[in-house]
Every structure is written in structure tokens, then in C-alpha cells.
């Protein structure tokens, strides 16, 4: 199960909406070993594409050094799908390389209809996808 604060949930959704029709991506880091998402880190989609995302390689190095220095870990890795449902694609699964992270997918496919936003969370381990419950809380 992913437990996330209302404030972080809204930041992820706002980032996905702002970057639509391109895919938005980012991370929420937390203290190593805690599994608690705390620090919102929106990333630039170096692919600037409606169908693909990739963290810029230099940003990635900087980010991981920072995590190391602050004794943090990637708790959530999020990205948006802009025309399809919020479910990991084949590509998402093959590039999922953080076994400890919650992979959050947001769909902005219905962004114009102002319908309910899709916000789902998955574990991706050795190519296997397991959806998990998302619990949004006021605070931890």
C-alpha cells in the first residue's frame, strides 16, 4: 500500500496537468529505510514527448548524489500517461529499475473533460506488476 499526503498527491497531479500533452515525470524522496514519501522532486522530461519520458542524464546524476548526501531513497517514481490509462506499459516495466519504489502513474487522458483523475500505484519487480492501494492522508 502507498500512503501519501494530500499535499504531495496534489503536487503530482498538478505537475501532470501542467505538462499535458507531454508526459510529466518526477520523484518523491524520503528518509532511507522509512518508505515515507516526503520531498517532492519534479523532473524535466528530457524526451519532451507525449509518449515517452526519461530523466535527463545529468539531472539524474545530480539527483542520486543528492539522495546519497541526504540519506534519502526514491520512495515514489511518478509519470503521466497522456492518452492511455494509468497502468504500466511494456516500456515502463522493462525500464523499472528501482525495486524498492512505488511506481505512481497518473492519467491525464481525460484532462479536458475534468473527469476524475486516474492516480494509481504499482510495484514493479523483475518484470512483474502488482497494483497496490493508495491511501491519501492529511499528514503522517
Amino acid at each position: 500500500m502507498l500512503t501519501i499526503s494530500q499535499a504531495l498527491y496534489e503536487k503530482i497531479v498538478a505537475h501532470a496537468r501542467a505538462d499535458h500533452p507531454d508526459e510529466a515525470c518526477g520523484m518523491v524522496a524520503g528518509p532511507a529505510g522509512s518508505g515515507r514519501p516526503e520531498r517532492f522532486i519534479p523532473m524535466l522530461n528530457a524526451a519532451r514527448s507525449p509518449t515517452f519520458y526519461e530523466f535527463d542524464s545529468m539531472d539524474l546524476l545530480k539527483l542520486y548524489r543528492e539522495l546519497d548526501d541526504r540519506d534519502e531513497e526514491p520512495v515514489i517514481i511518478y509519470h503521466s500517461h497522456t492518452a492511455t490509462e494509468a497502468y504500466p506499459s511494456r516500456t515502463d516495466i522493462s525500464y523499472a529499475n528501482e525495486p524498492g519504489a512505488h511506481y505512481v502513474l497518473v492519467s491525464t487522458a481525460d484532462t479536458d473533460g475534468a473527469g476524475p483523475f486516474e492516480f494509481r500505484s504499482f510495484r514493479i519487480l523483475d518484470g512483474e506488476v502488482t497494483e497496490e492501494e493508495v491511501r491519501v492522508v492529511e499528514a503522517y
Partner: peptide, 30 residues
């Protein structure tokens, strides 16, 4: 520096260098 902008797999190394490996964080809808 990203070795793609150096010599890729043939990039020359020296004593005391530090090499960092990081899988890309990437994906997409297909």
C-alpha cells in the same frame, strides 16, 4: 560526465577516477 559525451565504452580511465552507474529512469505509454 556522462561517458556518452566522452568515448562511450572506450572512454579512457585513470587512477583515482570515479565511475557511477545509474539505470535511466524512463518509460512511456507503449
Amino acid at each position: 560526465e556522462d561517458v556518452r559525451f566522452l568515448g562511450g565504452i572506450a572512454t579512457e580511465l585513470g587512477d583515482g577516477d570515479s565511475v557511477t552507474i545509474l539505470p535511466a529512469v524512463a518509460g512511456g505509454m507503449r
